[in-house]
Design a protein around this nucleic acid. Structure first.
Length: 283
DNA sequence: CATAGCTCCTGACCGC
DNA sequence: TGCGGTCAGGAGCTAT
């Protein structure tokens, strides 16, 4: 489900509500992708810091000493996988019992943070710091953030010199630039006029400029629209996103391109669907 | 090192 | 209504 816009929309929807809250109790459901790595009872009493995002990961700092402040904060690294979503229910109350797909409940003095994830590809992992294991290892191979000023056409062009894979797969891999998943990779390539099968090392500098710009524009627009709700994406307050209705190619196989009228195609790359317009996008 | 393929898991949908 | 096959927003791991 969640690509960078959905993760960031989620973060913004609950970060300010939970910051400063004290953890009361953590309850686990079925196992997620990896074990939590700490006894849930040990999290009680810790204070939640400022929630941040790196790629599609969220980081919830937890501070044990109320006024310590020294040293790198430990915390929870969370990932929503394919089907995960976070809900935040403010206040204290009798929350609905955890359902079959609710696998992580963190009760705090500000409310309940709940991870729902039917497919359980998501994860919540305790780490003694963002730069400590296991968080450091999980984040190690991530590319640059798309809104980082360092990310531009020359960055992309340089990184693509050594790659022969199709550009769509390189965007998905997230080790050059993070954030574009299956929807936004197709959308960005459409916007840039680039055939998704084009080898990275065949992309000219100007085309890399167009692509870098398209990645930023597509992700920014999705962010403004609250993400994409294909089936069930919701932010932490249950709000759906609206980007999906703006998709130019994603999930539009057989429809006509709104720009040139050609028929949108669907192909499979790396066992994932790619959508593109054969009229607008060139090798 | 770069790349290709497999894998985790459940639910929705489609054709018969 | 049931059954089997296919597909789904991610990405780490392993083998080559």
């Amino acid at each position: 489900m969640p690509e960078l816009p959905e993760v960031e929309v989620t973060r913004r929807s609950f970060a300010s509500h939970i910051e400063g809250a004290v953890v009361l109790e953590v309850r686990l459901g079925k196992p997620l992708r990896w074990p939590l790595g700490i006894e849930p009872a040990q999290l009680a009493g810790q204070r939640v810091g400022a929630v941040s995002r790196r790629g599609k990961y969220l980081w919830l700092p937890l501070e044990s000493a109320p006024a310590a402040g020294a040293g790198p904060a430990a915390g929870l690294l969370m990932h929503l996988g394919m089907s995960g979503s976070l809900a935040f229910m403010p206040g204290q109350g009798a929350w609905p019992d955890a359902g079959t797909h609710d696998h992580f409940d963190m009760h705090t003095s500000a409310g309940l943070l709940r991870l729902t994830d039917p497919r359980r590809f998501g994860a919540v992992v305790w780490s003694s710091g963002l730069d400590q294991l296991p968080a450091a290892k999980l984040l190690a191979s991530l590319g640059v953030e798309p809104f980082d000023p360092r990310f531009d056409g020359s960055w992309l062009h340089a990184a693509f010199q050594r790659r022969r894979v199709a550009v769509k797969l390189a965007l998905l891999a997230g080790d050059v630039v993070v954030g574009a998943g299956n929807i936004y990779a197709s959308e960005a390539l459409f916007m840039a006029g680039i055939d998704p099968r084009t080898r990275c090392d065949r992309l000219s500098r100007p085309r890399c400029e167009r692509l870098a710009s398209a990645v930023r524009v597509v992700l920014a627009r999705a962010l403004e629209l609250g993400g994409s709700t294909l089936r069930d994406f919701r932010d932490a307050h249950g709000m759906a996103g609206a980007f999906q209705s703006q998709a130019a190619v994603y999930d539009r196989e057989g429809a006509s391109c709104q720009r040139c009228g050609a028929t949108i195609r669907r192909i499979v790359q790396g066992q994932r669907s790619t959508y593109f317009c054969p009229g607008c996008q060139r090798r």
